[in-house]
Amino acid sequence: MILFNAGNIGRKIANARKTKNLTQLELADYLGVRYQAVSNWERGQSMPDIEKLPDLAEILDLSLDDLLDRPQATAEVSALQNQNEVVSEETLTEYAPLMKPQKIAAKLTNVTVDLEHLKALAPFLTSELLAELLTQALPEKNDFQQLASFAPFLQEEQLQYWIDVTDLDQLVLHFKEIAPLLPFLSKATNDRLLVQVCQTEDLARHDLQQLLPFVSRAALFSMMQKTPLDMELVQAAAPFLGKNYTTKIFQDLLAKGEAKAITGLLPFVDSEILLTAGTQEHDPAFFKASLPFLKKEQVDQLFKEETTQHTLEDDALKIFLPFVSKETLFQYVQGQLAKNPTSFFNELKVAFPFLNQNQLSTLFTKPEKGDTPHENF
Score class of each variant (00 low, 15 high):
Leu154Ser: 13
Thr93Gly: 05
Asn376Thr: 08
Val86His: 10
Ile262His: 04
Gln336Gly: 01
Ser39Phe: 03
Trp41Gly: 06
Leu233Ser: 03
Leu254Asn: 08
Leu133His: 15
Glu94Thr: 00
Lys248Tyr: 08
Gln24Tyr: 11
Leu173Tyr: 15
Gln210Ala: 13
Glu89Trp: 02
Asn356Val: 05
Tyr332Cys: 04
Phe330Gly: 04
Pro367Ile: 08
Glu177Met: 02
Pro152His: 08
Val77Asn: 13
Pro239Glu: 01
Leu68Cys: 02
Arg70Pro: 00
Glu76Met: 03
Ile9Gly: 11
Val350Ser: 06
Glu281Gln: 13
Gln359His: 01
Gln251Pro: 00
Ser127Glu: 12
Phe352Ser: 09
Asp202Ile: 14
Gln170Glu: 12
Ser127Ile: 07
Lys366Met: 02
Pro367Asn: 14
Ala106Trp: 04
Glu327Asp: 10
Thr247Arg: 02
Leu265Met: 07
Glu258Pro: 01
Pro54Val: 11
Lys12Arg: 06
Leu130Asn: 10
Gln209Gly: 09
Gly10Trp: 14
Met99Asp: 05
Asp315Thr: 00
Asp69Cys: 06
Lys226Glu: 14
His206Ile: 09
Arg217Thr: 15
Asp230Asn: 15
Thr307His: 00
Ile50Lys: 11
His206Cys: 02
Phe354His: 12
Leu329Asp: 07
Thr227Arg: 06
Glu232Ser: 12
Leu203Tyr: 03
Phe184Thr: 06
Lys304Ser: 09
Leu291Arg: 08
Trp162Ala: 00
His117Ile: 04
Pro367Gln: 15
Lys226Ile: 05
Asp371Met: 12
Leu68Phe: 05
Thr362Phe: 12
Asp61His: 14
Val197Ile: 13
Gly370Met: 05
Pro267Cys: 02
Met47Ala: 12
Thr279Trp: 03
Phe240Tyr: 14
Ala79Met: 04
Ser39Glu: 07
Lys349Phe: 02
Glu258Val: 06
Lys12Tyr: 01
Ala73Ser: 03
Glu201Ile: 10
His310Ile: 09
Glu258Phe: 04
